[in-house]
Amino acid sequence: MIRVSPIQGTISVIIGVVILAGILLFVRCDMLIMIVLSGSMTPLMLPGDVIIVAPTDPDQVRVGDVIVFQHPGQDDRMVITHRVTGIDADTGLYSTKGDANSAPDRFSVSKGDIIGRPIFLIPFIGFASEMKKQVILLMVILPSLMLALLETRKLTHGPHAARRLSRESPVPKGQIFSIRYSRLFFLSSVVLALFLLLTVPSLSGIQTYGSFSGSSVPQNGCITVEGRGLVPEAYLICTPGVGGVPVYGIVQPGETVSIPISGTEPECTVARLPYVLPVFWFVGLAGLNPYLPVLALAILPGAFLTLVLHPLWAEKKFVKLRRKRRLVDRVLEN
Rank of each mutant, 00 (worst) to 15 (best):
V190I: 11
T199F: 01
K132W: 02
V190F: 08
E151F: 12
L137P: 00
L155S: 08
G126W: 04
G210M: 04
G158Q: 12
L196W: 00
G229T: 08
I136T: 08
V217T: 10
G227R: 07
L196T: 03
K132V: 04
V135P: 01
S129E: 07
C222A: 11
P159C: 13
S178T: 08
L121Y: 12
M139I: 00
L145I: 09
E168Q: 09
R183S: 03
S144D: 08
L184V: 08
P172M: 10
P143H: 11
V242S: 08
T199A: 11
I115Y: 10
I141Q: 14
A193L: 11
M131Q: 14
I179F: 04
P159N: 15
L145Y: 01
F186S: 04
F212K: 08
T208A: 13
Q175L: 09
P232T: 06
L236E: 09
T239W: 14
L150S: 13
K133A: 09
S188Q: 10
G221K: 15
L198F: 15
R167F: 15
L203S: 12
V242W: 13
H160E: 03
L147R: 05
T208M: 02
I176L: 04
G241Q: 12
P172N: 11
G221H: 08
L155E: 10
P118N: 08
I125A: 00
F186R: 03
S166K: 14
S178K: 11
F127R: 07
Y209G: 14
L155W: 11
E226C: 04
L196K: 00
L203Q: 05
Q175Y: 01
Q207P: 00
I141V: 14
K111Q: 09
G112D: 10
S202F: 03
L149M: 09
H157V: 03
K111N: 01
R167Q: 13
G210F: 01
L192C: 14
S202I: 02
C238L: 07
S129A: 13
C238M: 11
Y209N: 11
R228Q: 12
L145V: 07
R183F: 14
N220F: 02
V225N: 05
S211K: 00
L145H: 02
F212H: 07
L155D: 09
I114Y: 10
V191G: 05
R183P: 01
D113N: 15
S110L: 04
R117L: 03
L230K: 15
R153G: 09
H160M: 00
I136L: 13
V171R: 12
I237L: 14
L192M: 14
Y235F: 07
P170K: 04
Q175I: 06
S110A: 06
G243P: 04
S108E: 14
G112R: 13
